[in-house]
Simulated scan of single mutants.
Amino acid sequence: MTTIPFWRRKKIRRQVLQGAFLAAIAAILIIGATTAQRNLSAQGISSGFGFLWRATGWEMGTSLLRTSPGDPYWWFIFNGILNTLLMGFVGLFCATLLGLVIGLARSSKNAPARLLGTIYIEIFRNIPLIVQLFFWYAVVTQLPNPRNAIQIGHVMLTGRGLHFPGLNVTVLSAVVAIAIMIAALFVILWIAVARRFGRVESTRRRLLSLGVLVTGILGAAVALSWGRIPETPLVSLPELRGLNIRGGFQLRPEIYALAFAITVYGAAYIGEIVRGGFKSVGRGQVEAAQALGLSPWRVFSRVRMPLAVRAMLPILINQYVWLIKATTLGIAVGFSDFFMVIAGSITHSGQALELIGILMAGFLIINFSLAAVLNRVNRAIALKGKQIGVAQ
């Protein structure tokens, strides 16, 4: 039996080529890093990440946690990441709800509803997001001054921001309470989609989800009670004092202008994805549900909606990742997100390469984590085998 020389084996050749390719990439990176280090040293610019523990010396416009000019760079960057996550969560949540409504209108049998859905999509999908952001920011900053605030109950809207009742609690307790509620919601979602709960009766699953929700609410209430500021009322109400509004919680204009722009822009794309998902549901499956005597609502909630979600989720993942990256446009209106904090840090510290690397790594981790979670949900709800059906 003739032995084939190892250099002629296809598997060996592939491994050698892959190794050479990886070695070439590593060599390019090493040469680039060495050259950058040499050039920085020639210009008297120090490299490394030691600057992260130095004081910033500048104010951060918006932050969930307390910041001051004496705080280190890493604390500002952490708060920028929190702002990006908050804006991403609010934008994705609101865009999904509005996109669902638009998608249902587009796939409706009602002609006026389809027309309104089409007009909405064609308007907001074809105007660049940054143009919409500037428009909404100009609108909210032209609202009345505090003396002429638009007031609904204890909520006051002015050109300086939205004021509503707040809690006199420490920032740490508020963060802990929010984290408890988010964890409870993730557990409820896990119970709903995990295969291990598929064999559990629906009544027991509902009771288990309700128990998790009640536990989360009680845990959040305990955290808020623990962090209550002494000798102050639990609830702080906004009120006019002099030329400004004091008390309560203030939401700055750039925050809800950016959230609104991401919502209306993202909903236009999500609406089309939703419409495509409903169109992919086979007519035979809907007719079979109707033949069983199911009501129109049960046909929608038990047949059309679950099948449509399975079809649209892979495309929604890409749209969600794109909308997370769109939060970087907040720098145009002064929102202190991850990108703006990094840009300000580069200006004040001069550590451009390190900070850009942190920015790239941060968004890579955020978007990869989001995609990984949603892909896990997609695999959990995916139907096994090839589904054959005739689209409507």
Rank of each mutant, 00 (worst) to 15 (best):
Ile262Asn: 08
Gly242Asn: 00
Arg228Tyr: 08
Arg241Gly: 12
Gly271Glu: 03
Pro230Gly: 15
Ala261Pro: 14
Gly242Met: 03
Leu237Gly: 00
Val222Ala: 15
Ala220Asn: 00
Arg275Ile: 08
Ala257Asp: 11
Ser236Asn: 08
Arg252Tyr: 12
Arg241Ala: 14
Ala257Cys: 07
Val235Arg: 02
Arg228Ala: 07
Gly216Gln: 06
Gly248Gln: 14
Glu272Ala: 02
Glu254Lys: 02
Gly248Tyr: 15
Ile217Tyr: 15
Gly219Phe: 12
Val274Leu: 06
Phe260Glu: 05
Ile270Arg: 00
Lys279His: 14
Pro230Cys: 12
Thr232Cys: 09
Leu258Ala: 03
Gln250Met: 13
Gly247Ile: 07
Leu224Gln: 05
Pro230His: 05
Val214Ala: 15
Gly219Trp: 07
Pro233Tyr: 08
Arg228Asn: 09
Leu258Trp: 12
Ala267Phe: 06
Ser280Asp: 05
Arg241Phe: 04
Ser225Cys: 12
Lys279Val: 08
Arg252Lys: 09
Gly247Glu: 00
Leu224Tyr: 12
Val274Asn: 05
Glu254Pro: 06
Phe249Pro: 00
Val264Cys: 02
Ala223Asp: 03
Ala268Phe: 01
Arg246Glu: 15
Phe249Leu: 11
Ile245Lys: 04
Ala261Tyr: 09
Leu213Phe: 07
Gly277Ala: 08
Gly242Arg: 06
Glu254Met: 08
Leu218Tyr: 06
Val264Glu: 08
Ile255Pro: 15
Pro238Glu: 08
Val264Lys: 06
Leu218Val: 10
Ala268Ile: 04
Leu258Thr: 06
Arg241Lys: 06
Leu237Cys: 03
Gln250Lys: 10
Glu254Trp: 04
Gly227Asp: 07
Thr263Leu: 10
Phe260Gln: 03
Arg241His: 15
Leu218Phe: 13
Asn244Asp: 11
Thr263Ile: 04
Glu231Lys: 07
Glu272Gln: 06
Arg241Cys: 10
Gly242Thr: 14
Gly277Arg: 10
Gly277Tyr: 14
Tyr256Pro: 09
Glu231Gly: 14
Ile217Gly: 14
Gly242Pro: 09
Ala259Arg: 00
Pro253Ile: 13
Leu240Glu: 12
Ile217Pro: 13
Thr263Lys: 03
Ala268Cys: 02
Ala223Phe: 15
Gly271Tyr: 01
Tyr269Met: 01
Ile245Pro: 11
Trp226Asp: 15
Gly271Asn: 09
Val214Arg: 10
Ile255Ser: 05
